[in-house]
Amino acid sequence: MTQKTILSEMPNGTGRVQRQVVLPFLKSVEISFQSIKVRFFRSLITTMSLVLAVSFLSFINVSNDIANGMLATHDPDLRQSLIRSGYDIGAQDISVGSSAKQRWIVILSLLVCVVGIVNAQLMAVTERFREIGTMKCLGALDRFILRLFVLEAGMQGLAGAGIGALAGALFSLINAWLHFGTAAVRSISIANLLISIGIATGVGCLLSLLGVFYPALVAARMQPVEAMRVEH
């Protein structure tokens, strides 16, 4: 105990509260953003699988929204063209859901995407050992490092998933327009379209955060002595 009182009497540190090291939230956002910007190509690769998986999810959901919109018009021609293009619609059905097979493929693609993110983020952590170690030598706490990585992943996730969701929706609309004509595109409920895009974006963000969780923990636990490593 006496040790600690001596430390608290050291210059600059008269009280316990003042002896905290801090990293204001806005500053961490700034650092994370800058880190993504500078390593743009690296971030792009990390986010690419997310963009693809989310756009696939969005494509499937928006396609279903379009099919439902077409059914809601009660136009027998549109109904026939849906059945012709492979939708499994019974005589009494007034809506379509995603098929089990579709769901399977979507879930698989999202899983593959998370594994890809974990892999890319783990590599990023290994590459950045010197930066992380140096920050710790400058006084960073484990949770600062954790926060920086989570913020980076959150921003990458939001951007990647947003782009993916929009791209998937757009692709689905173009696809419907080519297959069923303008009537199909016009019949879609805007609310459902927005919900589908929103869900895809949200799922993408969650996956990005899920994927960075373990790598960020690894980074946070890295020892400051790593900064000293001279060999590669």
């Binding site: 430390l7 050291m10 540190g13 002896r19 905290q20 710790k136 006084g139 706490l141 484990d142």
Partner: peptide, 14 residues
């Protein structure tokens, strides 16, 4: 004898 916070503080200020 220092805990993680005190060590970080030491690295930061001392």
């Amino acid at each position: 004898q220092l805990d993680a916070y005190e060590l970080a503080w030491l690295r930061c200020r001392k």
